[in-house]
């Protein structure tokens, strides 16, 4: 028993060190910074203040937070809309096709997401592939503004974050026993009734998981907003990045970052209240 636990801790130790040094320490440092002030040259003055937090409640930043949330919410919603039909169609396919498709979903992860986002420029810009295709078919007369606006951000976010919705929704949908759907059919339930009464209640936790995993990064993915939003639409992630790299106001940036962490935890709490189980989040 004792020997076994020594063996275990040997393998767990790197993870504990990793978590402590690379995640926990930086957060503690940022928390510490958020109570400091910066001087005009970007240096840090170690005098305790709450001003950074109070400054967040400026209309400019509140609006930005709301806009970020709206973009994240729309992204999450689109991801749900795509994931359900996808999972329901894939459900009836053979095990082989399911495995293959799940692997294909994972393939883009092997490429850097920044590079993938640049790839979208080729597709979305004024003389990009999509616009050229649509104009050549005569469907549209003038190229559409598909990027450098909120639409571009949402397209990019949806693309990047879709797998986080797709995978939990698929696993929840695949888990439903086929005979439950047949039993519902047998009792006279039409497709929409089956979805509402059988599929939805049994997969809602998967959707919750996916929603958190899409919504939270969507608030912070500043590079998508930078590249596909053309820097015109600032989301909360851009704000934090700018405070650190451009405005060189590390304490204020830290305060917003901490604020974002608090909101995230609040969301997880709400999720818990709504009936989800913590284990399903991997102990978040």
């Amino acid at each position: 028993m004792k020997k076994n636990s020594g063996f275990k801790s040997f393998f767990i130790l790197p993870i504990i060190i990793y978590t402590f040094v690379l995640i926990l320490l930086p957060i503690i440092y940022i928390l510490f910074l958020s109570f400091c002030t910066s001087d005009s040259y970007g240096g840090i003055l170690y005098n305790f203040t709450l001003d950074n937090y109070l400054n967040i409640f400026d209309m400019t930043y509140i609006k930005m937070l709301l806009k970020s949330s709206l973009i994240a919410l729309v992204t999450t919603f689109i991801c749900i809309l795509i994931s359900y039909p996808f999972a329901l169609i894939l459900r009836n396919k053979s095990e082989h096709i399911k495995n293959l498709t799940t692997k294909l979903i994972m393939v883009p992860f092997l490429t850097n997401s920044l590079i993938r986002t640049y790839g979208w420029i080729i597709l979305l810009r004024k003389n990009g592939i999509i616009n050229k295709f649509l104009t050549s078919l005569g469907i549209i007369a003038f190229p559409l503004n598909l990027m450098y606006n909120k639409l571009g951000i949402i397209i990019g976010m949806t693309y990047t974050l879709l797998p986080f919705m797709l995978l939990p929704v698929c696993s929840a949908v695949f888990e439903i026993d086929k005979s439950l759907i047949e039993a519902a059919k047998d009792l006279g339930a039409k497709p929409l009734q089956i979805f509402k009464n059988i599929i939805l209640p049994q997969t809602i936790s998967g959707v919750f998981n996916g929603s958190l995993m899409v919504f939270i990064p969507a608030i912070g993915y500043f590079f998508i907003a930078d590249i596909l939003g053309g820097g015109k639409t600032m989301i909360i992630g851009n704000l934090i990045k700018n405070q650190f790299l451009t405005a060189r106001n590390w304490p204020f940036g830290s305060a917003i970052a901490i604020f974002l962490i608090i909101i995230t935890f609040a969301l997880v709490k709400v999720y818990k209240k709504l009936g989800g189980k913590m284990e399903e989040l991997g102990g978040l």
Binding site: S179, L180, E182, A183, A184, I198, Q202
Partner: peptide, 8 residues
């Protein structure tokens, strides 16, 4: 049904 298929 064989497995009864009660709605859980």
């Amino acid at each position: 049904f064989q497995n009864l298929a009660l709605f859980p």
